[in-house]
Amino acid sequence: MLQLHDVIKTYSGKSEVTALDGINLSIAAGEMVAIMGPSGSGKSTLLNLLGGLDVPTSGRVLVAGKDLAGESEKERSLFRRTSVSYIFQAYHLMPTLKVSQNVALPLHLAGVPANEINRRVAEVLREVGLEAREKHLPDELSGGERQRVAIARALVTGAALLLADEPTGNLDTARGEEILNLLRAIHRERGTTIVMVTHDHHAASACERLIKLRDGRVEGDSLRGGGDR
């Protein structure tokens, strides 16, 4: 599903910063993977490359056999629209749109017919348990509910890859647990590949595989219950 070959990402400015320094990774379809590491280890950069939000300075990022580094901005946008979905720590919901409108947004961007949008939105809102909140604005929801809206928005496109950037980072333990359960259920029931960046060991333990990064390099890659890959 995901393959990274000798991926280097540097940011130029007054001084050059190497965020990823020769990453080689492979994640199979249907896996649920946690990426951990201290601040500045390159976790979010890695996630951005996997989602086609950014391109590597060198190396190859293959997602479902497609090398994103060689794709144009438009092709990467279309890839994000159909093949990948995101969950952010800060939710990134449109504050002025109602819950159902936020969830429907990627479908509108893709030009899906209105009745199909309504059907799919209702279905995912039911799945995340927010059917009663569809007319609310994000400001009227709790942190956990907002993250569930973000998850519903990620699910609605039916993308096979879900990238989550600190999905429980803004939540208390109970709400965080709810979100993790939801992600596990999605992984289990839909077979979605989930790659989650987190600082939280408890959140990481929800995943089958743990990749540790430090200074832009893979420091460790292990399966739940022990054993290196």
Binding site: F79, R80, R81, Y86, H92, M94, P106, L109
Partner: peptide, 16 residues
């Protein structure tokens, strides 16, 4: 700017 970023992350093309 943040809305634009979210739209782009959700697959909106630069042209859109």
């Amino acid at each position: 700017r943040r809305d634009i970023g979210t739209l782009r992350a959700l697959g909106a093309t630069p042209r859109q």
